[in-house]
Design a protein around this nucleic acid. Structure first.
Lengths: 214, 214
DNA sequence: GTCTATAGAATGATAGAC
DNA sequence: GTCTATCATTCTATAGAC
């Protein structure tokens, strides 16, 4: 066969591969989010991806490897949101931007948040290195910035670490506990207006709570 | 055999049953907390309880039944803490009491919090009725009280529901994400002093955030 | 009440025809 | 790249001897 033919066929195969990998990764995120690593089964993931189980193992030989890929994707999305808390002289602006970014993420990617929550609850068997390196460095740098705001009298003296935990907890709660929130909302997901009010309430309480006028 | 003898032997058996049930329930709470319902195996629970798997099935015929018992216990503990947010004319006192009770619970019973978190993430297959009845009634009554505080000008106007979510999120985060918090604390659990500061920080930010002087 | 053995189903993963 | 068949293991649960 000609080089051209091989190229076309390889291009075709590559396209199929990409498509199938995406379907599997999406299904895997759903199932891992709901059941955690041990509780999820490759059979269920394959079923939700609409392919036979053997095909899933053709693309992702092991369940653990598939899980790693899912976790990697989620961590990269998390990093993007983390970057929104950039160096700034204005605590009100910077924190508002960050809280909004995290809330938006909880709405657009709730599954990622749940996979992360499951992983942490299980004591981070896969992502412990991310926690110890990337997350720790990021946290140290951000607590440093918050401490400077305190030293400059821009916000009240609170322990920066626990402020960050409150922001993470509150924003991720809307993803991880979304089912409970919906149940308490007459079984319906929060509407756009309710979501905006939740964002506003969270932002206001936190900013006012550290002494920033809102 | 005499009635006396039967009574003694039954008393003995009852004691053994109680002891074994407790060992199993404790082990089950650990394993369900870490792996969720589907991910947990009765073999692992039995192993951690120090008994053969067949014995576990003698005391708790089905995994689902065992899980229900664990969930029931946890819900009752949750109800106790919930009661600490009682009717009060003083928002500062009432909320401080409630936040402290929830934080203490996260420290003393982190496993219960994790089982609950897993159950909600999985869309509450077992406890949906608790959510729809008990939790909804409790929430409605508490948001009513908070709204009265707002109407009386005791706290700033915020949506009561989202204040409660922030309190739940922040306090439960210290249990559910305890591993992440410990990792960011040089791999060590928070000390008594750190815990007190976390409590104080959470309470201060929330109270100040709704306009209560602290 | 305890324990060994095991049934019967589900699971992760692979072989091999197409 | 797909799919049926299947293996080895693990899982929930039970039977039955002690």
């Amino acid at each position: 066969m000609s080089a051209q033919g091989a190229s076309i066929r390889n291009g075709h195969k590559a396209a199929i591969r990409e498509e199938n990998e995406k379907a599997i990764l999406d299904a895997a995120e759903e199932v891992f989010a709901e059941y955690g690593f041990s509780g999820a089964s490759t059979g269920r993931i394959a079923e939700r991806a609409g392919i036979p189980k053997a095909n899933l193992h053709y693309y992702f030989p092991t369940k653990k490897g598939l899980y790693r890929r899912v976790i990697d994707n989620i961590f990269n999305v998390w990093l993007e949101a983390a970057n929104s808390l950039d160096d700034s002289d204005d605590p009100g602006e910077a924190l508002t931007r960050y809280i909004h970014a995290k809330m938006d993420l909880s709405r657009s990617r709730p599954l990622g948040s749940k996979v992360w929550a499951n992983e942490i609850i299980q004591r981070a068997p896969i992502i412990q290195d991310y926690l110890e390196i990337t997350l720790r460095e990021w946290t140290d740098s951000r607590t440093g910035m918050i401490q400077r705001w305190i030293d400059e009298g821009k916000i009240l003296p609170i322990e920066p670490r626990y402020l960050l935990y409150m922001i993470w907890a509150t924003t991720q709660h809307y993803a991880d506990f979304g089912h409970q929130i919906a149940t308490l909302n007459d079984g319906k997901e929060l509407s756009d207006e309710q979501w905006e009010e939740a964002k506003r309430t969270a932002t206001e309480i936190i900013l006012r709570g550290i002494g920033v006028a809102v």
